[in-house]
C-alpha cells in the first residue's frame, strides 16, 4: 500500500515535468520524481518493529553479531543507495538551475514556448 502512494508521487512529478511551461517548474517536477524514487528505495528496506541498524557494544556476542540484532534491524543497504542517489540529484539540480539562469540571461524569459530557436 505505501508503495502505491510512492508511485502516485512519481506520477505527480512526471505530470509536472511534462505539462508545465515554466522552466523552474519543470525542474521542480524532476526533483519530485527523484524524491519519490528515493522514498521508494528507503521503504523497501522497512521491517515492522525494526530498529536502526547501528551496531553498539551490546550487540556483539562473542565476536559476531547477535541473532536479535540481525532479526530486528532494518535493511541498511537501501539507505546507502539513497545517500548516493541524493548526492547525484543534488549535482544534477545545481547544473539544471545554472542552465536556467544562463538561459534567462540570453532569452529574457523562463517560458519554454518562447525558447524555440532550434527547429526542424
Amino acid at each position: 500500500m505505501p508503495y502505491a502512494l510512492c508511485f502516485l508521487l512519481f506520477m505527480i512529478g512526471l505530470y509536472c515535468a511534462v505539462v508545465k511551461k515554466n522552466m523552474v517548474k519543470i525542474v521542480i517536477g524532476i526533483l519530485i520524481m527523484e524524491y519519490a524514487v528515493n522514498l521508494f528505495l528507503v521503504m523497501l528496506g522497512f521491517r515492522w518493529g525494526g530498529r536502526a541498524p547501528i551496531i553498539t557494544a551490546e550487540d556483539m556476542v562473542g565476536g559476531s553479531l547477535s541473532e536479535l540484532f540481525v532479526n530486528s534491524s532494518v535493511d541498511p543497504l537501501p539507505q546507502a543507495l539513497v545517500l548516493t542517489a541524493i548526492v547525484i540529484s543534488l549535482g544534477s539540480l545545481a547544473l539544471m538551475i545554472s542552465i536556467c539562469i544562463r538561459t534567462y540571461e540570453r532569452y529574457g524569459t523562463f517560458d519554454i514556448t518562447q525558447i524555440r530557436r532550434l527547429k526542424g
Binding site: 538551475i97 545554472s98 539562469i101 534567462y104 540571461e105 524569459t109
Partner: peptide, 19 residues
C-alpha cells in the same frame, strides 16, 4: 563554490539580447 558562483549572476535582462 556552487552557491558562491550562482549568487554572482545578475538577473536583469539586457534589451539587446531579447528577440
Amino acid at each position: 563554490l556552487v552557491i558562491l558562483i550562482l549568487s554572482s549572476f545578475r538577473l536583469e535582462t539586457s534589451a539587446s539580447e531579447k528577440e
